[in-house]
């Protein structure tokens, strides 16, 4: 108990001692996870809306892919992006390995299926009367999707929260494509891994606090949006 209490006190002290380095890590974490979430939502929400409303013959296949994608281990998504971006890979000429851009790509890959799956579930959850009425309105398909997503707004906000939660807290993808280079591609989760590996538990814990606070703040903000 004493050990834990001392650790917590050290962690709080660490938090104020990090200074510029912490600010840099924090900024990169928010930027990478934020952009990845925006991409994930911009692609995933329309995809999920389409999945929930379409009778296209490929629907079931894409449904399976999305559901599988929701459970893909982040390290695997990272590996896929790494192979694509590696020197002699198809996108190797872009020279993006171990850059924040690559991290955004890997995390967007994780965010898209989550955003799509949660959105599709929310729209399907509106029930048969809503889906029948949506067809009966005879709207253009993009308008129909807009009305459906608007109706399922609490679910769509949950999709945003789920996507952000998944990417901000994952470590495998950013580690493998970013390389955890201090001052360049280090984010909160990879910094925690590094500090823990060096037995700097107070620092690791302090970073953990910060991560927790970010997730909490984002969810509070989205929760407010939901009740509007």
């Amino acid at each position: 108990m004493e050990f834990l209490g001392g650790l917590l006190a050290d962690a709080v002290r660490e938090l104020f001692g990090f200074g510029a380095e912490l600010r840099r890590i924090l900024f990169l974490t928010l930027a990478v996870a934020g952009i990845a979430t925006v991409i994930g939502v911009l692609v995933g929400v329309p995809l999920g809306t389409w999945l929930a409303l379409t009778r296209h013959r490929l629907r079931n296949t894409i449904d399976v892919l999305v559901n599988a994608g929701m459970g893909v281990p982040p390290v695997l998504a990272g590996l896929l992006i790494l192979i694509l971006l590696w020197n002699d890979g198809p996108l190797g000429s872009l020279d993006l390995v171990f850059t924040p851009m690559a991290m955004v790509g890997a995390q967007a890959l994780l965010a898209i299926p989550i955003a799509a799956g949660v959105t599709a579930g929310a729209i399907r959850g509106l029930g048969p009367a809503a889906s029948e009425q949506l067809i009966a309105l005879r709207l253009a398909s993009y308008r129909r999707g807009f009305v459906a997503a608007r109706e399922a707004l609490p679910g769509v906000i949950a999709a945003v929260a789920a996507a952000f939660g998944r990417v901000v807290s994952e470590v495998g993808a950013v580690l493998i494509v970013g390389g955890n280079i201090e001052g360049e591609t280090q984010v909160l989760t990879t910094a925690i891994v590094q500090q823990a590996r060096q037995a700097h538990f107070d620092s690791a814990l302090a970073l953990g606090f910060v991560l927790l606070i970010i997730v909490a703040l984002v969810n509070v903000a989205l929760g407010r949006l939901r009740s509007v």
Partner: peptide, 12 residues
């Protein structure tokens, strides 16, 4: 056709 379903759904 224009169609009125049995269960009327009122959107937000």
């Amino acid at each position: 056709a224009t169609y009125l379903p049995q269960t009327v759904y009122h959107f937000r």
